[in-house]
Nucleic acid binder design. Structure first.
Lengths: 348, 348
DNA sequence: GTTTTTTTTGTGCTCGTACACTTAATTTTT
DNA sequence: AAAAATTAAGTGTACGAGCACAAAAAAAAC
């Protein structure tokens, strides 16, 4: 299997008894070719598996493929720093093949910023796009134009049912809620109450939080030893501190807290300040969370490898554009678990 | 940054006022060049950052680099199936660049098989080698010859202090023992006794088990709420069943069991058969273990992503050989944690 | 039946590097 | 000082694809 029987344009020309130029015209459907010559080439082409030599192609064209990435600016949310690093890494790897990747960073608090960057991308004529469709309406507008120009795009992190993406790379949010519930179940044996906290629910990714909650309560419901659940919605603008302290002092039956976002450090902060010990599970290996993981106030941080995620998204685009390979319609990444003793190997 | 100011041999020739041929001779140190011409070229070369165009190089040479991988045959131990898959994946990715990878699989129960494959590799003249130095003496013999022929090699999975490897990709075994201890600590709150079981300790990777044990007991010792530890060494040939059942019935104080290898399914089997509930932590997402993870008999499986590990090893070799990049002397991969709710995303 | 126009096919050059081969310059020999 | 031998420098070609242009063949016009 996999014998390197790679035919060249020249081989085909000889086999079909025509010139290189004719083969080229048939393969690319450009120029004019007589039916007779066309047939001769087609017969050969059907018999063999011609794969153009990417090396030669790249050498000639100077550039094989132009890819754009439209992701949130990490200036506004540090979470997006590491996906960007992931993109930068593939960028270097494939630069030698003549694939260029340009990043467009939008402000995740400003739909207009998304729209502006989308326009820039359409103007510059990329062959493929990796995009975090953060804003629903704006994203669909953008995708409509991409579809018209038949530019393939891969959605990333946020899944849009109505998008016509060639692939989606993300996480299984509901399942990640289940993972949180299983962890909580394993560490807080005794029955009691659990708190689910959504922080900043007005943001565009509130749907993320809801799916996580669904997974969590679903697992909890299935489990014989189940907990009573209480959901708390809050914004950092409100005074989360007073609400939470009141709640915890009013109801000492609460054994653990599940925070559905990376903002778990806000809760950890309060637990530390008031010297309250609760089991605490949250998301993402960001700086603010790590110190609490180290000190044991946060028990587990769930996350998905963001570099790898971005890396995979770009790799899929390259597979599609350059190698003409099939790519999966949807790829859900592993739900990773970090604690005090293993988080270090994840962050470098 | 990163302007594509890539000079070609021709550019350099013009700048130095010599011919392409002379530049070529200086760069590759072949043929004869007068001191005068040499100086002229060197001056230009020192001023600019010449990076040969890999595309053109590959097109001309037809093959850029030949890499060999010497790893255990998965026919004897399924664990090695997935690293092989990881290698196959990079193989495809870089084939387009003219990098070829050939696998040599040895029998992990037979040092002679390792030696034979090593000889084959040396005969075939590879430019770089990825190797699992499973057998101490045989590996050192092999490395000596590699050093003589100055063929770079990366060790993989097994670390050999005395090897002169350009890099090592593996896991932090001691730390993985600590992770196991932290998990055990989190799920088995109450004090009591824990069992550490080494299965098949006569094998070449017994050093792996000992390091894991060290990490486990070290964490346990540091912890205020510490457990009494008991170590059990056994081979599958012995009757692990009678020993274990006796032990567990004799000492009901035992709360949990830590098995230092992927053979944890042997223990799970016994627990299931005798309807004994203990916390159980072991290694690796192999088929035999997964059913017990699903049924809840195994609580956690610790592992490192084997595809990724192999992938990284090969990528480092390519970075070194093709891109002439610096690579880290040692790369320890994350220690991953799988449970019932998250293992599926790891295995495809 | 010749000229013009259109269609079809074939050839040459380019991308950047590597290497064989030729030519030029220098040194050695007689 | 001229011829031979050696050393140094320069040129041509190939790798495979792509595209511009030239050449040839066929069709249309006179």
């Amino acid at each position: 299997m996999g014998k390197n029987t790679n035919y060249t344009i020249n081989d085909i020309a000889k086999m079909a008894n025509v010139s290189r130029g004719t083969v080229d015209r048939v393969i690319h459907g450009r120029g004019t070719v007589s039916k007779r010559a066309y047939e001769k080439v087609r017969i050969v082409l059907d018999k063999i598996d011609y794969k153009p030599n990417l090396i030669a192609q790249s050498l000639k064209k100077g550039e094989l493929s132009k890819i754009a990435a439209l992701i949130p600016d990490h200036q506004y949310d540090v979470f997006w720093k590491r996906p960007l690093d992931g993109i930068e890494k593939v960028k270097q790897d494939y630069a030698s093949l003549g694939v260029t990747i340009e990043n467009f960073l939008f402000n995740p608090y400003n739909p207009q910023s998304f729209r502006e960057n989308a326009i820039k991308i359409l103007e510059k004529q990329f062959e493929g796009i990796l995009v975090v469709p953060f804003f629903y309406k704006e994203s669909l507008d953008f995708f409509k134009k991409c579809d018209e120009q038949s530019i393939p795009y891969i959605t990333f992190n946020t899944f849009l049912e109505d998008a016509n993406a060639v692939s989606h790379v993300g996480q299984d949010l509901k399942q990640s809620g289940r993972v949180a519930a299983e962890l909580m179940n394993k560490i807080a044996h005794t029955n009691g109450k659990l708190l689910i906290i959504h922080i900043d629910e007005d943001l565009a990714d509130s749907i993320h939080m809801q799916k996580k909650e669904m997974g969590f309560s679903h697992y909890n419901g299935q489990n014989p030893q189940n907990f009573e659940l209480q959901v708390l919605r809050t914004s950092p603008s409100e005074n989360i501190e007073t609400i939470l302290v009141d709640l915890l002092q009013f109801d000492p039956e609460i054994k653990g807290i599940y925070v559905t976002t990376s903002k778990v450090f806000l809760v950890a902060n309060i637990l530390q300040k008031y010297q309250i010990k609760k089991y605490l599970i949250g998301y993402d290996l960001i700086e603010e969370n790590l110190s609490f993981l180290k000190s044991g106030i946060i028990d587990f941080l769930i996350f998905q490898n963001p570099e790898y995620q971005a890396n995979l998204g770009i790799s899929y685009l390259i597979d599609l554009l350059v190698f003409k390979k099939e790519i999966p319609k949807k790829k859900l990444l592993p739900i990773e678990i970090a604690m005090k003793e293993n988080y270090k190997n994840y962050i470098q």
